[in-house]
């Protein structure tokens, strides 16, 4: 199994533990990752606001580069995944538009042909690798760990470009958690927005939003939350003390990146997964599963 790894900006920045844990997990599972280093930011839905065609062109360039290597793209950021899938739909649904965008790539020697598949680590794990294969590799069962999945908007909406089977009632993280021996819990905030996009601009609203979701997971007995999107993680973890204060509740719920949760079950050490970098300590949960 070999993929072109699109790291996204956050895994290179404030969420480097995501990249650390991704590589650690990939090594463990025998997934070969070729990091795309000559590609730009996906635009995160922001560039498209200034210029939709520019955003599509930047992504088309990324797709073309993966195609040149004969690899499919693996995303570890839910936002990148959602943005890329949307851009791909724009290109694939309109031949003329694709030609027009390709015209702008030509000079750089690239052409998007439309063959590349864009996958998030979540579906690579649940579909390409498969749950039974994962189940066989578990060395530290997550037995007794109550995990609240937090999907993040971009992996779900719009439904038309989502990877998930039923984005209105997704189960991918749940079945993955159970395959690792853990228990997944259902809660109010599971499919909602983390508030990150306006964290810098509307802090009060943003941290209230995040706080409400964490509180609703806690109410259902969650030991931790896990998210396939590092932007959600940034919103839910570093700002959690402020969220708790804003909504007037004690929270203290560790927020794991997806590969961290899976990595723990594969016997990787918390430090190998960069878990010491979290603002909300993960010690309680690592103690609970005994690693």
């Amino acid at each position: 199994m070999k993929y072109a790894l699109y790291t996204g900006c956050v895994a290179k920045g404030a969420g480097r533990e995501l990249l650390t844990s991704t590589y650690a997990l990939a090594g463990k599972l025998g997934i070969e990752l070729v990091e795309l280093k000559n590609v730009s930011c996906c635009g995160a839905g922001v560039i498209t606001e200034e210029n939709p065609e520019l955003a599509d062109a930047l992504n088309a360039r990324t797709f073309a580069i993966a195609e040149e290597q004969g690899l499919n793209i693996l995303n570890i950021c839910g936002t990148c995944q959602g943005v890329m899938k949307k851009a791909q739909a724009h290109l694939d649904n309109d031949e003329d538009y694709k030609d027009k965008i390709n015209e702008t790539l030509k000079e750089g020697g690239h052409e998007y042909k439309g063959t590349v598949k864009i996958k998030h680590l979540l579906t690579v794990l649940t579909e390409d690798l498969g749950l039974s294969s994962l189940r066989n590799k578990v060395t530290v069962s997550l037995d007794g760990l109550k995990v609240a999945p937090f999907y993040g908007c971009y992996l779900l909406r719009p439904f038309e470009t989502s990877d998930l089977d039923d984005p209105d009632n997704p189960t991918a993280i749940e079945v993955l958690t159970e395959a690792l021996g853990g228990t997944s819990i259902d809660y109010e905030g599971k499919l909602k927005c983390c508030g990150f996009p306006y964290l810098m601009m509307k802090k009060k609203q943003s941290i209230t939003m995040a706080g409400n979701h964490i509180a609703s997971a806690k109410k259902e007995g969650a030991d931790c939350m896990v998210t396939p999107c590092p932007l959600c993680q940034l919103s839910l973890d570093p700002y959690q003390p402020e969220s708790a204060k804003e909504i007037g509740q004690k929270l203290d719920i560790p927020i794991l990146h997806l590969p961290q949760l899976v990595g723990l079950a594969m016997g990787l050490k918390p430090k190998e997964l960069g878990m010491q970098k979290h603002v909300v300590s993960t010690n309680k949960i690592t103690a609970k599963i005994g690693c």
Partner: peptide, 30 residues
């Protein structure tokens, strides 16, 4: 401060992507 203490801050020196010129060219085109 919280993020810095945990080492969760972005790297202080920001490294641009490789082949930046081609991306700049696309920006310019638009």
């Amino acid at each position: 401060i919280r993020m810095f203490l945990k080492g969760k801050n972005p790297p202080l020196i920001h490294h641009p992507m490789q082949e930046l010129d081609d991306v700049k060219r696309i920006f310019k085109k638009f």
